[in-house]
Amino acid sequence: MWRSTENAYGLVTILFHWLTALAVIALFGLGLWMVELTYYDAWYRTAPWIHKSLGALLLIALAWRLGWRIIDRPPPPEPSLSRFERIASRSTHLILYLLLFAVAITGYLISTAEGQGISVFGVFEIPATLSHLPGQADWAGELHLALAMALIGLAAAHALAALKHHFLDRDRTLLRMLGRSSSPQQPTQERSPR
């Protein structure tokens, strides 16, 4: 099932979701680690190259994901969700998308501040279109870190909400993003002794 249905997300949406989650976690960890490297560390040049390449691929994937979301509407929220939960869910998803793009764009501005394009694993290059602004690398770097921290924080809250829906509410919210449309097992009732 490539496309979403009334009961579950389609395979393309599921892959975009989990690949994005893995990429964000990997990029965040790599980014924090690489800024602590010194000139004499073996990974001093390689880690930023990998970070930039993965970030560029993530930006391309995000554009595809957004296009896919426009043509493949997600299933409606679980009927058990309150009005507040529906609004919170829509708002969180919108802010996550905005943060993903903002983090990627500020990363692009850091990488192209001196007018050099971004080599994506040596396969192709994304050209520098906006560069040589006063202090570009510095302010873009500070903004990039702040936005990345906000993204990780909101993604963690998003994950906790999914776990809450699964374990406390016992609804299908998480299962649908795992490709399953059936409901979770209901707790078995204890039989009274005879």
Rank of each mutant, 00 (worst) to 15 (best):
M149A: 15
A23D: 11
H132V: 05
P127E: 13
A61Q: 09
T38E: 08
I70M: 12
G153E: 14
L154W: 00
G179Y: 03
G107Y: 01
V35R: 12
Y108G: 02
D171P: 00
G67S: 06
G115Q: 04
Q136T: 02
Y97F: 12
S80Q: 10
A146P: 00
P76G: 08
D169G: 00
T112R: 05
R83P: 11
L175F: 11
F28I: 06
L98A: 02
P76Q: 05
S80N: 01
L66Q: 02
P75C: 07
M1P: 14
A56G: 07
I70V: 13
L163N: 07
L58I: 04
R176S: 13
L66M: 05
L94S: 08
L11P: 07
A157P: 00
H166Q: 13
Q116P: 01
G29Q: 15
S4W: 07
L143R: 13
D138S: 14
I152D: 08
L58D: 06
Q185C: 04
L130V: 15
R45A: 07
L58Q: 03
E78N: 15
S119K: 03
P187A: 10
K164V: 01
L32P: 10
I71F: 10
L37M: 14
L37A: 09
R180P: 01
W139I: 08
G115F: 07
D169Y: 11
R65S: 01
Q186S: 04
I50V: 12
G10C: 04
A146V: 11
G141W: 07
A102Y: 15
H51E: 15
M177F: 09
R69Q: 01
Q189I: 09
T13I: 15
R176K: 04
L37Y: 06
W2Q: 09
T106K: 10
F124S: 06
L37K: 08
A47Q: 14
T112W: 02
L160W: 10
F28S: 04
I70K: 02
V103Y: 06
G153S: 05
P184D: 05
A88I: 08
E114V: 14
L62C: 12
